[in-house]
Amino acid sequence: MANQAMSSRRMIAPAEALQSLSATLLAVERLAIMGFMFLLAGLILLNVVTRYSGRPIYWVDESAIYSVVWLTFIGASAMTRLRLDFAVSMLTERLSERGQKTAKVIATGMVVVFGLSLAAMCWLWMDPVGIARAGFDARAFAGETFNFLYTERTQTLNWPTWMLYLILPIFALSMTIHGLANLVEDLGLVPPAALKGFVLSDVDGVN
């Protein structure tokens, strides 16, 4: 009995740590979402005022576009933890209770697999080892690998594009963490955590 209790505790402790990490990440994402929403509203308002006054600011449009991109990916990550991603329930609602739980575990596992796959793709694409080996010389790296990621810049802001593309590995990592937190809950290793800062209601057709 004592050995079983110790084994059970060894499984629960990492699951609780994963839940805590996901909760912290979700709190940061909540602040980031609010920040980007205020930023986007401010940029749109600035664009309207400057255009109406006949003195448009040329970099506002591009800033708004990248704000929407970051807001979308951060929001999608948060929705993963909140289980607000869309689900088709035509098949699962006809399964037994055990079958529904199994299908839910499989669906959550696929989210984790997708996050890990996206993270691997970002690693190959951004090649941090390769750019470090080139002494962080973007031109030398591009000449050796024909990967021009670190030499490209945005059209109006003139920012390095790799800085803006960082949202992809961030999204992959955060979605994987949230997916694992959901998975340990679906497996019954820990009870579902109370997610603070979000007002949720029961909605049909979501996971």
Rank of each mutant, 00 (worst) to 15 (best):
L25Q: 13
G135H: 06
V199Y: 12
L26C: 03
T102N: 10
F86T: 12
L40Y: 11
F141D: 01
S53Y: 06
T154R: 04
F73M: 11
V199K: 15
S20W: 07
T72C: 11
T154P: 02
L71W: 02
G205Y: 02
A132E: 06
M79T: 08
A23Y: 00
D127S: 08
L82Y: 06
Q155Y: 09
R94C: 07
L173F: 13
A87I: 00
G179F: 05
Y66N: 05
F114E: 01
L180F: 14
A2V: 09
R10G: 00
A78F: 03
E185K: 09
L40Q: 14
R83D: 10
A5T: 09
E97Y: 04
I44E: 06
P169L: 03
Y58L: 13
S22W: 00
S77E: 04
V105T: 05
A107C: 04
V105S: 03
D61R: 06
M121Q: 07
V88M: 10
A119L: 08
I44H: 08
T176F: 10
S67I: 02
S201H: 14
P160R: 08
A138D: 04
M163Y: 12
G115R: 03
L200S: 15
E29D: 14
Y52S: 14
R51H: 13
A27Q: 05
G197M: 12
T24C: 11
T72F: 15
E29Q: 15
S22E: 01
P14A: 03
P128Y: 04
L25N: 06
L149I: 05
Y66S: 04
A107S: 12
G109I: 07
A193K: 09
V69T: 01
P192H: 13
S174Q: 12
F146V: 05
I65P: 00
E97F: 05
M110I: 14
